[in-house]
Structure formats: C-alpha cells, structure tokens
Design a protein around this nucleic acid. Structure first.
Length: 442
DNA sequence: AAATGTTCCAACCGCTTCGGT
DNA sequence: TACCGAAGCGGTTGGAACATT
C-alpha cells in the first residue's frame, strides 16, 4: 500500500483547510451527499484528495458534532470505555455522541493519560503504576502489537478493580496523590476561533432539499453502549445518586424515551466481545482469558425488543430475558428519562452550544421545558447571527425524520452483534437537523 | 517585548477492513 | 476465491496558540 491513489495527483492542497474550502465542501455535501469520496473534490471544486475531504467532513464539518471542552462525565466515560476497549477510538467515540474518534484520541493523549499517571494509574493497563512496574520487572509472554500498546491488559478485570479503588480513594483524599490542575486555556478550544457561517451558506442550505443528504458511515448513530454501569470505578456505586450515576449515559436518539433497556446479568468476556462486535477472539490475551470476569458487569442491552418500536422477540441476542420496565426505572437505569435533559441544560454553557445543539434543543424537542429554556437562551444568538427564521423548516424536517429515526435506532441496536459501525448510509443525516459550518479559524 | 518551551489539535500517513465484481 | 478500489481506523506529526523565562 502507499498513498491513496488520488494523492499522487499533482496540485493537491494539503494542510489546514481554508474557510472557502470548507464552504465548498459543505455546500457540495449538503446538496449532493458525498457519494464516492474520491469524486467529491472534483465535484466540489476542491484541490484536495477525497480522503482529506472525508476527514474534514467527519472531524469538523459534520453538523452533529459537539464542540467545546469535554465535560468531566465525558472524560470519565472515556476512561471507562478505554479500560474495556483499549485504543479503539472509533468505538469509544460511538458512545459519545457528537465527539469524533480523533478528538477523543487527542484528548486521551494530551490530557487523560497525564491525569491518570498523576493519579498513579498506568493509562495503558489501567493498573496502578507500581503494579505495572513490578510486572515489567518480571515480564511475561505478551502478544501485544507494540510494547507501548494501550490495549487493555489481559487481566483487565483486576485492573479495573484496582483502578476503581484508586480513583475512589484519590477522589476523597487527593492530597495523597496530588493532581496538578492543568490550567485551562483562556478560552476553551473551539471557542476562540468561532466563525459565524456566512448567511449565504445558511440560506443556500436552508433552501436545499434534504432528499440527497449525505451519508457518513462513521457518523451514523451507533447503538447505545450495551453496558449500563459498565465499570464501577467507585466501589460504593450504590452511594451515587441516580443523577450522577446516569449522567454518564445519555441517549443518542432524540426519541429515546420509548427505548427500554435491559439489565443483563454478568457475562463472560467472550460474550462481551461478541455482543459488542469487538471481534475479540476469546483467546486474545488483551481481552480474553481471566480478565473481565472479575469485574461486576451489568448490561444495558438497549434492547429494542422491549421498546415497542420493533417486533422482535422479548429476549436479546444473548438470550437473557429483560427486566421489567418498572424495575429498571426503579433502579434508575435509564439515563435519558429526565436526567439527560437536565444534564444537557446544566452541562452546556452558552458558549459551548453549537448550531446542532441549539437546533436540537430549540426545535427538536418542541414540547419540552428544555426547549423553552434553550430558546430563550439562544434566541438572541439566532436572531443576531442568522437573521432569518429557520424554525419552521427544521421543525418540519424533524417531524418527517423522527419516525424513521426511531425505527432505525432500534434496528441499529439489533445490529449490535454484527458490526461496530452501522452500514446504513442514510442514518447519519436522520440525526442531523441542520447543515452548518462551524469554522474555528476566524 | 522577544525568545524559548510546551500544549493541543487538525490533518496526514499507512495499514486494515469492507464490499463489489 | 482472488482482486481491487474505497472507506475506516489508529498512530504520528506539523504548526499554531499559549505559557514561561
């Protein structure tokens, strides 16, 4: 292999994207979809290779991206997911709606790794550093791809247990393991360079039909992560209030109140990998064997069968019977009943809300109190920046899309066993309410 | 104020996987 | 089943922004 074939062509631009390029790409994809990425640059009038266009779209221009600093909940979730998934950034990103794998990878490498080390935790193995040092002194056979592999240690169950202990301990007595508080930049990244999209662009996209909305495999809604209370970093998990516990979990699908989860019994690592579509061979020393079984797992199958929106059987792919809805609710398993909305309004600062957030909050949830709140918060922004009324268009489109969205969400979950990415190319745009440009350079 | 060091992130590169033929 | 092109993924890097001296 080598360079992508299109990159051999001369006169292809590299490096940072200009606003003009972004606009061209955005306009093109909004109107025509991306189709074959290799043909996008030509059709859009860009001197870029298709691969570059794809990356730009996925990591930057995609309307459903959430920008701004990661919340603590998001960081916690990333750590938990990394403990299970290792450096499978795309799979981790799939559990954090609006975040890209690249973004998460960067966060991990630049920030989270450091924090974990400062807490005495090895970010690669999620074990205490002392323990890792000891094991290095007495090396064992390993089939890790690299010595610096960040993949999960084979004994991740033990590791998680230890990490859980450490984290809960340090949370209470941080002076024992002082954590240097990294100075935040004067403004959150992504905020300093915000540029309001040109009105022409909005108008153009507003008046463009969405029947040809582009697809993006990696941005397709991913089935909700099948674990609820996946890894209990706090030993005393039950002491957490429902809000904080569930705050890590929020629904990707706006219509999720109809989605019923299933609490699953502890399972084996092999079952885990199978169900998650991780393609982890049971003998894989990084994931299989003795590890995860040591940790208490509870499943949130996000089983569409009980949602009423599909006609599938009452048990999930693992053959477990779902708990009753009542018991689940009583156990506060649902993160997205009310908590999600509360969280949204709490977590998002005004500055952090982007067009997609704004539109979701303003138009998509038309009957909620949150809508009123968001509306009042961002009315000024809308009026000042766009100077025209988007509400009707977006609302009507959302109404058109929502039923499909629900069904798709359900079928996506069914597909959980088969793949980490959803193949239906139409899915992603069902979630995308607004073509926009969120240009950081400005 | 300038020089230097550090951090962060967008984008690139190369490999793997997927899907069509 | 093999081949090939496209897409996806994760590691790495260049450089802008920021912090420190």
């Amino acid at each position: 292999m080598g360079r992508h074939s299109c990159c051999y062509k001369q006169k292809l631009r590299k490096g940072l994207w200009s606003p003009e390029e972004d606009e061209k790409l955005m306009n093109h994809i909004t109107k025509h979809g991306h189709g074959c990425w290799s043909s996008v640059p030509k059709l859009a009038g860009l001197q870029r290779c298709g691969k570059s266009c794809r990356l730009r779209w996925i990591n930057y221009l995609r309307p459903d991206l959430k920008r701004g600093a990661f919340s603590q909940d998001e960081e916690d979730l990333i750590i938990e997911l990394h403990a299970v998934l290792g450096n499978r950034w795309s799979q981790i990103a799939a559990q954090l709606p609006g975040r890209t794998d690249n973004e998460i990878k960067n966060l991990w490498n630049s920030c989270i790794k450091k924090k974990l080390r400062q807490k005495g935790i090895d970010p690669n193995t999620h074990k205490p550093l002392a323990e890792v040092d000891r094991s290095k002194a007495t090396p064992t056979m390993s089939t890790d791809r690299t010595s610096e592999s960040s993949d999960v240690d084979p004994s991740s169950g033990v590791a998680l247990h230890n990490l859980s202990h450490l984290l809960s301990e340090t949370a209470e007595s941080s002076e024992l393991l002082p954590v240097k508080v990294t100075k935040p930049r004067t403004q959150a990244p992504g905020l300093t360079r915000l540029k309001v999209p040109p009105k022409e662009l909005f108008l153009d996209q507003l008046t463009t039909g969405h029947e040809n909305l582009p697809s993006c495999r990696s941005s397709a809604p991913i089935p909700n992560f099948p674990f609820q209370q996946l890894l209990c970093y706090n030993n005393d998990f039950s002491s957490m209030d429902a809000g904080s516990r569930n705050s890590l979990w929020y629904n990707q699908n706006e219509s999720s109140s109809s989605t019923i989860s299933t609490v699953m019994p502890p399972v084996s690592p092999s079952a885990l990998s199978t169900s998650m579509g991780l393609n982890l061979p049971p003998e894989n020393p990084r994931h299989g064997g003795t590890g995860i079984g040591n940790a208490p797992f509870y499943w949130d199958g996000s089983n569409p069968s009980s949602s009423g929106s599909t006609g599938s059987s009452g048990s999930n792919s693992m053959g477990f019977e779902p708990q009753s809805t009542t018991s689940i609710l009583e156990n506060s398993v649902f993160p997205w009943t009310d908590i999600g909305q509360e969280k949204d309004t709490r977590v998002h600062s005004v500055e952090e809300l982007k067009w997609p957030d704004l539109l979701h909050g303003t138009f998509a949830e038309a009957t909620t109190a949150m809508q009123n709140q968001s509306q009042s918060l961002y009315d000024d922004v809308i009026k000042a920046e766009s100077q025209f009324n988007m509400e009707g268009i977006c609302a009507s489109w959302f109404q058109n899309q929502q039923p499909q969205q629900q069904l798709q969400a359900a079928s996506d979950i069914i597909d959980l066993n088969t793949s980490s990415s959803v193949k239906d190319p139409t899915v992603s745009w069902k979630r995308q309410l607004w073509p926009y440009e969120w240009q950081k350079k400005g």
